[in-house]
Amino acid sequence: MATAAFTLILGAAALLLLAVAMACVLGWANQAFHVEVDPRVETLNDALPGANCGGCGYVGCREYAEAVAAGQAELTLCAPGGASCAEQLAAILGTEVTPSYPYRAVVHCAARRDQRLPVPKPQYMGERTCTAANLVSGFQGCTYGCLGLGDCVRACVYDAIHTVEGLATVDYDACIGCKACAEACPRNIISMVPFKAERMLVVACSNRDSGPAVKAVCPVGCISCSLCAKKSERMQMDNGLPVIDYDHYQEECDFAESIEKCRRESLVFVGKPGSKELEQVADEELPARIEAAFHTTVDETDWRG
């Protein structure tokens, strides 16, 4: 009994003593080995969400805060914090936030499957992926445009791109601009565009061939007439295709004349629908019950034996 009590008390005392001793040593070490850090780093770190998601490209929020304090990083890199977080960071540093725009994927092709003219060659019977079909001729006439076999759809983990009537179409409510589809596309017809407005004008064609050659394979593709570029100073012809200068693109830029002049369907607005589009469909009735679309379920496996 006495031994047990002694052991108990001695154990408690030993632990207590050890705790006190370690606390003293660590407290002293904290003082003695104190490292001066930029006090702004602490404040910046507090302003960040603390999610340590790594989305900014730094290891954790603290490292991003250090980079911001050192002036090595943009203020707008924090995706979870968003615009308000960037403003807080700017307020701490006493600077202004330069606006940044979200980059979204844009498909530079407008031809649906029935619009793509075939070539008089044996029909492509191979694997149903764009990468495979791109290796051979004979899939479709246009050697620049969308193949519609959905490599981009499979690459997208946000379910933000689908093949609608054989044409890859981005769902801008879901797209976060991760660039996976642009990297997956073997024909490089998906590019990332800074969305300075809800709706952006894009050149929906990638065919650089001359007019007759385009007309032979596609009823909607750009025929390099360069009328649009003559009507707008923000557009230029580059190697058979008009290029929109997104650096100087502004919402109020007027491309109406260019769009009017285009005799094909190569200049289109993409993004969220504008007021005109919403007015057009305002009197259409929505179905009471929406049926599941089977092409968006797991049944969409490309299994062909």
């Binding site: 705790a19 370690m22 070490a29």
Partner: peptide, 19 residues
């Protein structure tokens, strides 16, 4: 006791190395 010792020495080493 060991956990205590390990945790404290890691803390100490970290402070030392940081300095």
């Amino acid at each position: 006791m060991y956990i205590f010792v390990i945790a404290s020495s890691v803390q100490f080493v970290e402070m030392y190395v940081r300095k």
